[in-house]
Design a protein around this nucleic acid. Structure first.
Lengths: 236, 236
DNA sequence: TAGTGGTCTAGACCACAAG
DNA sequence: TTGTGGTCTAGACCACTAC
């Protein structure tokens, strides 16, 4: 683990230990540098990390303060940061509806940037959050990049397998979101009624080297999912 | 403008001028450093900015590459970065439905962290994107922080006024999103039918010093709004 | 193994906030 | 004015990729 990541983790522990609340002040920079025995740049980087993560905010000329969201029961759709493991406070289960190895469907080729006829794993899962239906997920993995998958893996966390077992480095993703009315087929899976509202998120995942390897479409159950995003900076 | 921001802007211009496409390689780090005459740290910071903004991605041991989303017509709900001015490619108009100075409503006090009885500007607007109804926005500004607003300002960009005229420094925000069925009152304003799907986003905006100054609830027109988010890192 | 991006340091100097 | 966070530099060294 890198020094600045380690430092960030230690600062989080410090906040936890001292039970600091929203708006509470941390020790000043120089103090933190001495306390954690790192250079100013490293400390700055650690703090920047925590700032993006939404853990603190820094005010020049004033100090470093704790930032917290006060609402519970919201899912972090994506943290402004990134590598934060979300949903840890929730119990996530999956039920696999289908699992196949098929030629890449026409309409998905452009999303995955795959060659015509290339094979993909096509997976359909219902995901549960704390016992409730959270979403229907349909995902497609390029076999060129993910050579092997089986039903057992797919019942667990696929991404953990990709990183741990296959050693793939997941880089970045493009997400496209829209709201609409549930089609009949999806409604059945979510145990809702056709025409009910739904948030649909299409995501294209890339490796760190930029190659797309996974395209997924997630349709969320509107009664069992709400999201929080901690943003930094202005965006109109 | 800071040097690393300036550098980032120049690199964007470089990409533009050379008409670089998704996956195209930029000059190597050392070359960029020489070319733009900055230190390695500064260049790294500029590149980090562009990476968070979704303009490039960097691969250790390999190079720096251009990243682009290929879908058009999507609104950037919030960039993973932040200060990127969104919607610039769209024509945004506002119609003010109501504009009042009132005591802070009960249910909003906790969101704004305001004192009981404190006065707030309450504004209701319909916002149009390229001539279509995009959303209904209800927002509340604390008069303690925003001493003056009028109908004319509110018809334009409020945030621009806050930053330019009042010199306020907008820091960070917490957003809460959920999907549901349109209530009758809102449906009318959006020219939709009660029960239609809707994305609702509540946002609490803070100054850089951490004080909340604006609470807003935006309900999006599901047929005229879809969003793109460029994320970095993993998030399940 | 060569090339490329990433981390880390010490220290000078700058910019903003609060009293 | 003082204290505090932010920027910038030069350079050493590390870690990954591709050949």
């Amino acid at each position: 683990m890198l020094k600045y990541q380690q430092t960030a983790t230690e600062i989080e522990a410090y906040i936890e230990q001292h039970a600091l609340q929203q708006g509470d002040k941390l020790p000043v920079l120089d103090q933190l540098i001495r306390q954690f025995a790192v250079s100013k740049t490293t400390m700055t980087k650690a703090l920047e990390l925590l700032e993006r993560k939404g853990t603190i905010f820094q005010v020049r000329g004033s100090g470093i303060f704790v930032r917290k969201t006060n609402r519970k029961g919201y899912i972090e759709l994506f943290s402004t940061q990134g590598f934060k493991q979300n949903l840890v406070e929730h119990d996530i289960q999956s039920k696999v509806l289908s699992f196949e190895l098929i030629p890449c469907p026409e309409e998905i080729i452009e999303n995955l940037g795959s060659a015509p006829g290339e094979m993909v794993y096509a997976i359909k899962r219902i995901r549960y959050i704390d016992g409730n239906i959270m979403c229907l997920e349909e995902s497609y993995y390029r076999q060129t990049i993910v050579p092997y998958l089986n039903r057992e893996i797919v019942e667990q966390s696929i991404f953990e397998y990709l990183e741990m077992a296959l050693g793939l480095n997941i880089g970045f993703s493009d997400m496209y979101m829209h709201v609409g009315k549930l089609p009949d087929a999806v409604a059945t899976h979510l145990e809702l009624t056709a025409g009910d509202p739904a948030l649909t998120v299409e995501t294209i995942f890339h490796l760190t080297n930029g190659r797309p390897f996974d395209y997924s479409v997630i349709t969320y159950h509107y009664e069992h999912s709400q999201f929080v995003v901690q943003a930094n900076g202005l965006y109109l």
